[in-house]
Design a binder for these strands. Structure first.
Lengths: 210, 210
DNA sequence: TTGGTAAATTAACAGTGTTAAGTATTTTTA
DNA sequence: TAAAAATACTTAACACTGTTAATTTACCAA
């Protein structure tokens, strides 16, 4: 059935066109200004055609949220080559902050916007696997650090939540303009790194405790 | 000018009616489902009348964001009676988490939504004074704790940002449904408290360091 | 060539925030 | 008290939004 295959491929191509157009719009104008009609305009189809490939606007956001996680994984490709788990932990946090600040619109969809979660809830197996595996990776890394005595022993889940909470908190406050006066724009990223380093420093056993 | 005064009072009364109606709608239906027409319906005026009292929808959100801070201050009324600054710090963090989880729609407007910040930017003296004084209070408290040797000495700004970042991160992840699978709903608040306590515990000098 | 299917479009609905123009109502002035 | 002016409010409309139903166009098998 070569013909059916080709048709399927065409279908996937158009889906990709729609997502590419949405991605471009998000980067250029922010997700708040994305409309189905603008997406359709960009791919030179009528607005309703988009609905033949995606159930609704939220489903497009869901796929963009997936693409965001892909981008994030790419940024973390430099992690495995760091042999020291503690150093890897530091780098992981830095990467997270950098990704968020360099891809604010993507970060917004991945961790702030409601839209993708609404779609997940409608799905058959409704779990946020992408997010859960990400936090799982952090937990494993913490576990490794504890086992090797590099950081203080503590409940892994609580520490992971604390770290994730902190980096997410900083990035999301910045993205949503709650740090405009508090920290000058050009110092934002370095200040966040400082806060993260401070936190990790307090549990880092390589610092002498008094 | 008793008459001008009365007119002014009437004007303020209607403004209050509009804000009360918006507040009710936000609590009942969430801010995503608030519309100018629904607000107008609730106060039994025509939709355009609302615009005679508020410049636009964002300005209403801005005032709701102010009311949110008021609510938050009320929740913190129990702080001054705690004489030990370190205990006050613990309680302040707990209050923050409790406020956010108990007033999710308000928290959203105060710390997540873009709308009130957009209004602030259009204002004459465009600074987020409410947020900045709140973080200022945290900084002062940390300063006091450090001076009295209750917590480890460190740059106040960085520590304040780390703490605020963490509690905000946890609350906002929960509100925006990123913790649905990770933590059972009924354990959310206690888990957050645990994370906060863990963080404060690491800088708390009253814990013996090995 | 015909019939049927898939793909895309047009038209429309019900809703949104917001503005301009017009109508009551109230207050001020003569 | 009557006319004029200012205030308060509403109606109608604009330019959008996401989305659906009905219709047309394009393609492929018999």
């Amino acid at each position: 059935m070569g013909i059916a295959e080709r048709k399927e491929k065409q279908k996937q191509d158009i889906k990709k066109m729609i997502l590419d157009a949405s991605m471009k719009l998000i980067i250029d104008e922010g997700f708040e200004n994305i409309t189905m009609r603008k997406i359709a305009d960009l791919i030179e189809y009528s607005p309703t055609t988009v609905y033949l490939y995606f159930k609704d606007k939220d489903e497009i956001f869901f796929h963009l949220h997936e693409l965001g996680f892909q981008k994030m994984l790419e940024m973390n490709r430099n992690l495995p080559e760091i042999k020291n788990p503690l150093m890897r932990l530091y780098k992981m946090g830095e990467n997270y902050i950098n990704f968020g600040m360099q891809n604010q619109e993507f970060y917004d969809i991945m961790f702030i916007q409601q839209a993708p979660m609404d779609t997940i809830e409608k799905m058959a197996e409704c779990n946020w696997s992408l997010g859960d595996t990400a936090i799982g990776a952090l937990q494993n890394l913490l576990q490794e650090c504890m086992e090797k005595g590099l950081i203080q022993k503590a409940p892994v889940e609580a520490v992971a939540m604390a770290i994730w909470g902190m980096v997410h908190g900083l990035v999301s406050l910045a993205i949503r303009n709650r740090m405009n006066k508090l920290v000058p724009k050009e110092n934002l990223v370095s200040t966040m790194h400082a806060s993260l380093n401070w936190l990790l420093g307090t549990i880092d056993n390589s610092f002498a405790k008094e």
